Each structure stands twice: as C-alpha cells, then as structure tokens.
Simulated scan of single mutants.
Amino acid sequence: MGFGRRDAVVSREQKLVFAGIYVLKKMDLKPAEGGMEMPLVLPSELTPLQDVLQELVNADFVEVNRRKARFEVTKKGLAYLSEIIDEAEALVDEFDEASLEEAVAELRSRNVDVLRARFLWGWYDGELDDLVLFQQRRGAEPVEPWWADYLLSDAFYEALRSDYE
C-alpha cells in the first residue's frame, strides 16, 4: 500500500454499471430535455464512454446503427431503464420523508448497496443531470469540465459517498 492511497471507492465494473445507467438515460431523453445521441465515433470529450457503450452493446441494451452512425437504445435497454426508474422511484417514495441517517441504516440493514441507492436517487431526481453543476454546487476544485471523465472518476463516487458517510 502506497502513501496515503485509499482503496477505490468503487470497482471499474461498478463504474461501468452506473455510467451505463447514466448514458442510457441521456440516450433515451430528447435533446431538449438534456438527452443526446451517441455517435459511433465519439468526440474526444466522450471517449471515456467507449467501454461503457461496449458494455451496453454486450448486454443488448444499445445497438449500433451503422446507417445513422450512432448507438441506439434497444427494446431490452428501454425495459432495463424502466426497471431502474422503478427501483429509483421506490427508493424516493420510501425514504423521501426519512432522515439521511434513518435511510442509510435501513438500507444497510437490508444489505442494499447504499452507494447505488445514492446514485439512483440523484440520477432520478435530476441532481446528476449536469455533472459540472453538481461539482460546482459542492465547491469542487478544480471542476472537471468533461462530464464523461467525471462520471468515471473516483472523485464522483467519493462525492456521492461523502453524502452518507
């Protein structure tokens, strides 16, 4: 163990799952609602999402549309997104009136991943829609201007975890 090194907040696999959920929402929403198309050839600011998109393709949640030169959400992907929305809605419905301490204690007593619950809550209620604004609201220094980099960074998951630890 090196000087001051901490264990990673989440594994690479967990980051790919959370980022996949985030990207699916972005792809499902209309551009006017904050959504976006994912081109097959990603611009440099989105290249960190290459592995995320590959995982989504492998899970059959998105597919390659060569004619339109973009990734598209599949029916299976929409069904998965619907399940995630239901999971997030259930969390919000159950714990909206609870104190943070009560909610975390209850989630832990059920062996629910508290980080996942925290991510889904912010994802569902729109807190995470703009990750630059999310950082600015928390006084992050420096602010990572490329949301895809931040979405896959330890700093993002450390910020989420700091809300309940």
Score class of each variant (00 low, 15 high):
R118G: 15
E102S: 14
R118L: 14
E144S: 04
E87G: 08
N111I: 09
D93L: 08
V114P: 00
W147M: 15
F156V: 07
L128D: 01
F119D: 08
D130N: 09
A148G: 12
L120F: 06
D86G: 13
E101S: 11
E127V: 06
E102K: 14
L131C: 09
Q136N: 08
R110C: 07
R108D: 02
S153Q: 05
D154Y: 11
G139K: 00
L160F: 00
F95Q: 15
S109L: 13
A117G: 06
Q136V: 08
L91P: 05
S153V: 02
Q136F: 01
E94T: 09
A159H: 06
W147V: 04
D149T: 15
W121E: 15
W121A: 14
D149A: 02
D113A: 05
R137A: 06
E89C: 06
E94H: 07
L160Y: 02
F156N: 00
D154N: 05
A140T: 11
V104S: 07
R110H: 01
D96E: 12
G126C: 07
L91W: 04
A117C: 02
V92E: 13
L128C: 09
Y157S: 13
Y150A: 15
E94Q: 07
A90Y: 03
A105N: 14
A88I: 01
E144A: 05
L91G: 03
D96K: 08
D130L: 00
D113R: 04
V112W: 05
D96S: 13
L151Y: 00
F95D: 13
W146R: 11
E106Q: 10
E102V: 07
V112D: 08
A159F: 03
R138I: 15
A155R: 14
A117Y: 03
R116S: 12
L151D: 09
S99H: 01
E141W: 10
V114M: 03
W121N: 11
E158A: 15
F95W: 13
R116V: 13
A140D: 10
V92F: 04
R108E: 07
E144P: 06
S99R: 05
G126L: 05
V104N: 06
G122S: 05
A90R: 14
S109H: 11
R137M: 13
E94Y: 12
D86S: 01
E102I: 05
E102D: 10
L107A: 04
E127Q: 05
E87T: 00
W123E: 09
D125P: 04
R108N: 12
V92C: 09
F119Q: 12
V92Y: 12
F95L: 15
W147N: 06
S99L: 00
Y150N: 10
E89F: 05
G126W: 00
L100V: 13
E144F: 00
E101G: 03
A98Q: 04
E106N: 15
E87Y: 12
L128E: 03
R118K: 14
L91H: 03
V114A: 11
R118Q: 07
L160I: 01
A159W: 08
W123C: 12
A140C: 05
L115G: 04
D113Y: 01
P142E: 01
L131Y: 05
D93P: 15
Y150W: 01
R118W: 02
S99Y: 02
L151V: 02
V112S: 03
D86T: 11
E89R: 14
L107W: 02
F95R: 09
A105H: 08
L120E: 11
W121Y: 10
